[in-house]
Amino acid sequence: MRNLKKILLALLIVLIGLFIGYNYLYHDHRDISSEEAEIKVNAEKLTKMFQLNEASTVLNKTVVVWGKITEIEDNTFTIDGKVHCTFKVLPASNKIGDSISVKGRCIGYDDLFEIVKLDQCSIL
């Protein structure tokens, strides 16, 4: 009887260990749309942050950025010609000239086009 209890306890510990291990290895991706944004700025300011060498404060962070849509291409918006936002599905109702706020993950500064890029974007 006591042996059985020990075996059951050991089994339980192993199961818990496996569960924790599995959750660590296969934890979910970040859900940017439900994360609280660490940085909230307009498009111009976000670009400036990279020019002022403050990249580390925004890289891979969830940001909220606002401005006017200046370009729509495939599943992306460009805001004020400075911030390029990629959506999984492009919101159909927005058009060029609209003022919007977008939440997304900042992946860095693109010096070919001199724009900041966001992915996993959602409209606020």
């Binding site: 660590y24 290895l25 296969y26 934890h27 979910d28 991706h29 970040r30 890289l59 891979n60 993950r105 900042c106 992946i107 860095g108 500064y109 693109d110 010096d111 070919l112 890029k117 992915d119």
Partner: peptide, 21 residues
């Protein structure tokens, strides 16, 4: 000329993406 921002690479497994970065 081409440019890829490293943070933009998406892996199926989140932990792999973290380790990569």
């Amino acid at each position: 000329a081409a440019l890829a921002l490293v943070t933009g690479f998406r892996f199926k497994i989140a932990l792999m993406e973290e380790h990569f970065n």
